[in-house]
Amino acid sequence: MSLESVRAWFAQHAPDIAVEESTMSSATVPLAAEAYGVPPAQIAKTLSLRVGERVVLIVTSGTMRLDNKKAKALLGGKPKMLGVHEVADLTGHEVGGVCPFGLKAPLPIYCDVSLKAFDVVVPAAGSTHSAVRIAPQRMAELVGAEWVDVCEDRSAPAQP
C-alpha cells in the first residue's frame, strides 16, 4: 500500500520523478547506499519523532544524527523516536521505507541543512525496497518542508 501511495503522490506532484525498486533491501542507510550505488551520506533518511502530542518528520543526510539540544530548541520539547507500530500507523509507511511523500495524513516536515551538500539525494519511497533520486531543494519544496539545522555529523569527533 505504501509504495503505491508514494507512486500516486509522485504521479500527481512530480510525474518526472520515477520510483526505483531494488531487489536488495534498503531498510537501513548502509543497505540503501549499497542498493542505490551512492555514499551513505547521500541517503536521505526520514526520522519520525514525537514532541509532546505532535508528530514531525525530519529528513537528514544518512550519516547525520539528531542533535537533541538543537531539536528541542527548534521543536519546543524533547523529541522521541516513534515506535515501529506508531510509525506505520501515523505515516502509512513501514520502518525502513519512511519518507515525506505519500503520507497517510499531513505532518510537519523539516529538512536538515546537511542535505544541501548534495545535488541529488536518495530518500526511501514507502517500502524497504524502493527509493527516488531527487534534488534536496526540490524535495523540500514539493513536501512543504522547512530547512533547519538540527543534526550533528556522526563521523565528526565528539566535542569535549
Rank of each mutant, 00 (worst) to 15 (best):
L3K: 14
E4N: 06
S5G: 08
S5N: 10
R7F: 06
A8R: 10
A8F: 04
F10M: 07
H13S: 04
H13G: 09
D16L: 06
I17G: 09
I17K: 01
E20F: 00
E20L: 04
E21K: 15
T23F: 01
M24Q: 15
S26C: 14
T28P: 00
P30K: 08
A32W: 08
Y36E: 09
G37I: 01
V38Y: 06
P39T: 01
A44S: 07
A44V: 01
K45W: 02
T46G: 02
T46I: 05
S48E: 02
G52Y: 00
E53V: 05
R54A: 03
R54M: 00
L57E: 05
I58G: 00
V59H: 04
V59D: 05
S61Y: 07
G62N: 03
T63P: 02
R65V: 10
D67M: 00
N68M: 04
K69P: 00
A73W: 02
L74T: 02
G76Q: 09
G76A: 08
P79C: 04
K80Y: 12
K80E: 14
K80D: 10
M81F: 05
V84L: 07
H85C: 10
D89C: 04
D89R: 15
L90V: 04
T91S: 00
T91F: 01
T91I: 03
H93R: 07
H93P: 14
H93F: 11
E94S: 07
G96F: 13
G97A: 05
V98F: 05
P100V: 11
P100W: 06
F101L: 15
K104N: 11
A105L: 14
P106H: 13
P106D: 12
P108H: 00
Y110F: 15
D112T: 10
S114F: 12
K116N: 09
K116D: 14
D119C: 01
V120N: 07
V120K: 12
P123F: 03
A124C: 11
A124Y: 12
A125V: 06
A125N: 14
S127F: 06
S127H: 07
T128L: 01
A131M: 08
A131P: 14
A131Y: 13
R133D: 14
A135C: 11
Q137E: 15
R138I: 14
A140F: 08
E141L: 06
V143W: 00
G144S: 14
A145P: 11
A145C: 06
V148Q: 04
V148T: 03
V148F: 00
D149V: 01
C151R: 10
C151Y: 14
R154Q: 15
S155G: 03
A156Y: 07
A156E: 12
P157W: 12
P157N: 03
A158M: 11
A158H: 03
Q159I: 13
Q159G: 10
P160F: 04
